[in-house]
Amino acid sequence: MSSILTVAGVFAGLSLLSIPAAAQRGGGAPQPEGCPGAPQWQIDRNAAAAAARGPAAPGGGRGAAAPEGAAAGRGGRGGRGGAAAEALPPVPRIPNEPQYGVQAGKPDFGGLAKGVWNVPYIVNLQVNAHDEKGCQYIIPPFKPAAKALWEQRELKDLEKDDPEGFCLPPGVPRMFFTPYPLQVYQMPDRILFVYEGGAHVWRLVWMDGRKLPNPEDVNPTYLGYSVAHWEGDTLVIESNGFNDRTWLDASGHPHGEQLKVTERLTRTDFNNIKIESTIDDPEFYTKPWTVVTGITWAPNRTGPFTMRGGEILEYICQENNRDLIHINAVPHTNTPR
């Protein structure tokens, strides 16, 4: 088993090196009207990479419609798209019986089945997610100081001070970008997410009708305070009460303690949950903005990444964490704000 873990680690490492190749974006979908083009930093980076490869290399600069051949579901480590074409079973549902409480009759997110949800590795929300209209590039509505901070973290420091590198919990909505698998347990009055990565943590979401607290009244935390309700077949999770010590993604999109996140989870078919995350933080952004990502179902079956018996593995990040020394990162509490 340890060799499998090593392979997984190598894949994660390769993903890190290939920043910002948009390999996890599903290709092919036509762009809606009015979408922004590639951000200038990406054009510059691709040009620099092309120049470094020399004149024989195929043209630099990412074309607007360059299909990357990413499998549907843009999922996870190494893109295990699976056999397409096969007819999928219908989306399973929780029995419509009173003992299931608020979950009765709603889509089943897999907690009773053998399997895990694979989580993609979203390095940079600007290029690895879609917006709510389907645009493949996102220009966050930065306030000037936020833009400068992101540029410092991504373009100057090359992400070396990422708090997740210190084995701190990735935060919300970043738990869906990590790229470590998760399971979802639906209970009559709450939902529990358990995660393989992010230091083997869990996240509890209340569904007993309580409202979000006044953020002034709760201790600021990495994972915040979460409540949820169903809107039709979409689970809507609202969270606040965050501390300011996480980044929204590995590239360092910032947030502060005023952050409020709304995540809308829809099991669009048997294999996929679509996740629309709206980030609202008036300290750093001029208006709320939305990123659309997804997670993909990996049932209990044999294969290089699914020899887990349908369960998530135990990954303890803080065990022998040496990366930070090598990349000369500074302690997270000193990161610029």
Binding site: G111, L112, A199, H200, V201, W202, L204, Q318
Partner: peptide, 18 residues
């Protein structure tokens, strides 16, 4: 937390594990 097919224990300490 009890589900029909599993029992989940979540901990405050021990690094917020389950």
């Amino acid at each position: 937390l009890q589900l029909p097919n599993r029992v989940v224990m979540v901990f405050e300490g021990g690094t917020h594990v389950f």
